[in-house]
Amino acid sequence: MSFINYSSREINCKIVYYGPGLCGKTTNLQFIYQKTSPDARGKMVSLATETERTLFFDFLPLSMGDVHGFKARFHLYTVPGQVFYDASRKLILKGVDGVVFVADSQVERMEANMESLDNLRENLEEQGYNLDALPYVVQYNKQDLPNAAPMEELSKVLNPTKVPEFSAVATTGDGVFGTLKAVAKLVMMDLRKRK
């Protein structure tokens, strides 16, 4: 849930990166962290296992400029993608203002993408949210891999409602900031609508 502090003149919002295991959610955040100047971002916190799989969440606080004297601050979170961490995923969705679904473009991961997307919808509903009413964008990651399905095919299955969608290669940063800016903008527009 966004938090507007009139005293510190800040608008704080929460964006969650969701998607199947190993789709590149953490890599998105790592790239954003590396490419943002230190005065615009805080520390990146990763609660990961010894093998660097996300155990609970990654967290990156980010400033994205001023609007009418208010600092627009976004707290980016990732969820653990592995199926059995569902209880943790539900917790992280609490108070979400915007969602990025990171799909793994590899053909053999299509089923995992679909399962994760269904899981996102269900978990949101459990918290009283409707994915179709939330600021929401889709990213097709790993588009550089030889076994990546074309975007049109992925889109047909994973983005039936035609929300903004982005092709990405998170390891090189392709599409990473495009995705972030799009969801952040939708979140701000949504706040304005709900004023």
Binding site: F3, I4, Y6, S7, S8, L191
Partner: peptide, 11 residues
Amino acid sequence: MEVLYEEEYRQ
């Protein structure tokens, strides 16, 4: 949307 105004913030 949670909103915190100056008066309450001070308290």
